[in-house]
Nucleic acid binder design. Structure first.
Length: 723
DNA sequence: CAACCGTAGAAAT
DNA sequence: TCTACGGTTG
């Protein structure tokens, strides 16, 4: 998983752990934006390809990586073709996995937009070249091993020498084009791009594994979404209600500075400075200037460069260059301040509109800014062959497809907790009126009580993926498409957004037998999740672009899910007879009391000093969302604030949180238990003999000393550059 | 000085 | 995720 490879990112998951109230387990699938990182397992390693030649030119790397496969267990299949196919299998797994997620979201009426990483930010080039160097070393080592006849060791090194993610992205984009799923390749970082889309309400939420989205200021993030569509939701608006760390009075700026202090991609943290200390310091001194001042005053020697680097890191979070799909040009995430200086290249060099557009569409290599060097036809061939091979294998033996499993234990923990909670979860008594009209999946199906059917979604997920595979494999022979409301809707939304691609649209083919089996599986799953579907539809009131779910299911008249989902769509239509984006699907009446919050949050509920309005929202409106009324714009703008639906998840959330908190209680922050709280005076004037953690942005901390420890001397990196 | 805490590196996956 | 370590608290 990505976070294991990049220590810098590791620094933020602790923050995630500390979020309880604002990070809630949600039990329905929603959210509109998927980062490729959400599909973990997708990236074994982030960064350039071997030989310092980064990015998408990974096809060459595939050859290298594939080569040792011949010597491995797959040798029996023989030949170079197999080598590539073997790699293709990996590609396929990832693509398959991604598409499963896409379909899952689409099934729940969510329109995903996949966001890919683009070029490197100058600030990160150091890291990337280091990674590239390591890969090169591994490649050389692999060749040595190979020459020595040690194929196992060689294979190991070959694996380390390869960056497969660009090739996955490249192939995935092809599939996305075929499937008419929206995507966008960021000019630089996907995180910034996703934040941009979220900020300007092109999407309602971001699904990702990367907690960098928090310092970026993304207001609604869904972490660790599993294959059931469950995950942990983060809302910046609920941050104040967090218990483990007290964020009351924190502005977005403070959160950002806290994160930078504790270490980020753009700036390594000071030794001994972790999230807790950063939090305590920011809490007390409010701004990074005052914090550094205080640290210096306390005798900590901080290099003069630090403040400048700190500012740059903050700016990189705030003003990074991203692609504006509306204007079809490169823009800053937010307007740059005056004092930022002349040279803005550290935010990502400016790019001409045609280039950045080409990159966004996946037509241009974000690194070379030119056409891809990859031999497309070949790779297609390889992948197609791999598809065929995979299919014959999986269908023939009905072998369980090896989807990348979420290995993160925290994730698993959450999912487990959610599943456990789900077993005991009963339909909320409160049901939206509109939904009552149709046959509810819960009421009509005796199995809707999900007890004991946990394996089901698993297998259905597998089926689904396989089915998808099959379809993709034959995706050239597309069946006639009938124009529909959804199509119009789709076109419209695309037009207005200017995304590279089309609208979503899954179910435009006649259901194949496999598809039908998938449908059945989905239906069964839907029954199981009946109540959650209702929640989903509740959620959807704030979802900006709901497309095609009903279409998908309308071809399967048996689907009760379809009824529900169609209801949503029909509600969307009812205002003026045409499909309206951003409309409320259901009328909820009075906002419900928030039981979850009431029970688990004792903190005061004051006006939010956490200043959401500091964000450069284009359509800012402070009117609180009132469920069931208001115009469409308001709905989408205020989605982050209407938490009435929380009611429905309370059981799940409490259950999960209870376990979560007990597991994570080592992180408990109690204001009364003074030990952890408050500021610890750092050790004074002790020379920091240790080296810095290595793979971070290059900042010279040779002068710096802060809470040094003996054991830090064990750090491997030889600080030659600090000499 | 025991108990506890946060950080950081190693190990496992 | 696990664990060792140095540091703080009372």
């Amino acid at each position: 998983m990505l976070t294991k490879r990049i220590p810098v990112i590791l620094l933020f998951p602790p923050l995630l752990r500390l979020l309880d109230d604002s990070a809630r387990v949600f039990a329905s699938s929603f959210g509109l934006l998927i980062s490729e990182k959400a599909f973990q397992g997708l990236e074994r390693r982030k960064g350039p390809g071997s030989d310092g030649d980064p990015g998408f030119a990974a096809a060459a790397a595939i050859n290298h990586a594939a080569y040792p496969c011949a010597g491995s267990s797959r040798a029996d299949r023989g030949g170079g073709y197999l080598l590539l196919a073997s790699q293709g299998r990996h590609l396929l797994q990832h693509i398959n996995y991604c598409m499963h997620r896409v379909k899952l979201l689409q099934h729940h009426g969510v329109k995903p937009i996949l966001v890919f990483d683009g070029g490197f930010l100058p600030m990160k080039v150091d890291q990337e070249t280091k990674r590239a160097r390591k890969r090169k070393e591994n490649l050389e080592r692999a060749m040595e091993h190979e020459a020595a006849g040690n194929s196992v060791a060689a294979f190991d090194c070959y694996q380390k020498a390869v960056d497969i993610s660009p090739s996955i992205a490249f192939e995935l984009i092809k599939v996305l084009k075929q499937e008419k799923v929206d995507y966008v390749v960021a000019p630089y970082e996907a995180d910034a791009q996703m934040t941009f889309l979220s900020m300007y309400k092109h999407v309602d939420a971001v699904i990702t594994e990367d907690s960098d989205l928090i310092p970026f200021g993304c207001s609604r993030i869904i972490f660790k979404m599993d294959k059931f569509g469950q995950g942990v939701e983060f809302r910046s608006s609920l941050l104040e209600q967090n218990k483990d760390l007290d964020f009351t009075g924190f502005t977005k700026q403070m959160i950002l500075e806290m994160c930078v202090f504790s270490g980020c991609d753009y700036l390594p943290s000071l030794p001994g400075m972790g999230l807790k200390r950063a939090h305590a310091l920011i809490r007390k001194y409010k701004s990074h200037e005052k914090v550094t001042k205080h640290l210096r005053y306390s005798g900590v020697s901080i290099p003069p460069v630090y403040e400048e680097s700190f500012k740059k890191a903050v700016w990189a979070f705030q003003h990074q260059r991203v692609y504006d799909p509306e204007k079809e040009c490169i823009v800053h995430l937010s307007d740059v301040p005056q004092d930022i200086g002349e040279d803005l290249d550290f935010l990502g060099p400016w790019l001409p509109p045609d280039v950045v557009k080409g990159i966004a569409k996946g037509d241009l290599d974000p690194l070379t800014k030119g056409p891809f060097q990859v031999e497309t036809s070949n790779s297609v061939l390889v992948v197609d062959k791999a598809f065929a091979m995979e299919n014959s294998e999986t269908i023939g033996r009905r072998k369980k497809l090896e989807l990348p499993v979420q290995k993160n234990v925290l994730t698993n923990y959450f999912c487990l907790a959610s599943i456990q909670a789900k077993r005991k979860f009963r339909a909320p008594k409160f049901t939206p009126k509109v939904l009552m009209k149709s046959s509810s999946p819960c009421s009509s199906n005796p199995d809707s009580d999900s007890t004991g059917s946990d394996e089901m979604p698993l297998s259905s997920a597998t089926d689904q993926s396989q089915d998808f595979l099959l379809n993709s494999g034959h995706s050239n022979d597309k069946l006639p498409v009938t124009p529909s409301m959804e199509d119009r809707l789709t076109n419209r939304s695309n037009k207005c957004l200017g995304f590279p691609l089309h609208g979503s649209s899954v179910g435009k083919r006649c259901p194949s037998p496999l598809q039908e089996s998938y449908q059945n599986a989905v239906n069964r799953k839907s029954h199981e999740h009946g109540t959650e579907l209702k929640c989903t539809s509740l959620e959807n009131k704030s979802v900006k672009r709901i497309v095609s779910t009903s279409h998908f299911f309308s071809e399967n008249s048996l689907s009760e899910v379809a009824n529900v989902d169609q209801n949503i769509v029909s509600c969307k239509n009812k205002e003026d007879g045409t499909v309206v984006l951003n409309d409320h699907p259901v009328s909820l009446g009075e906002p419900k009391p928030i039981s979850f919050l009431e029970t688990s949050i004792k903190k005061r509920k004051t006006a939010h000093p956490f200043d959401l309005e500091t964000l450069p929202l284009r359509n800012v409106k402070s009117t609180p969302a009132i469920a069931g009324q208001g115009n469409k714009d308001e709905n989408s703008k205020n989605f982050g604030r209407d938490i009435s639906h929380v009611n429905d998840y309370s059981g799940i959330a409490e259950k999960s949180m209870e376990k979560f908190v007990s597991l994570m209680n080592s992180f408990r922050y109690s204001s009364s238990g003074s030990r952890a709280s408050g500021l610890r005076a750092p050790l004074k004037d002790v020379r920091n003999t240790c080296s810095m953690r290595t793979n971070k942005a290059a900042v010279d901390f040779s002068e710096f000393s802060y809470k040094p420890r003996k054991n830090t001397a064990r750090v491997v990196s030889s600080p030659s550059k600090f000499d």
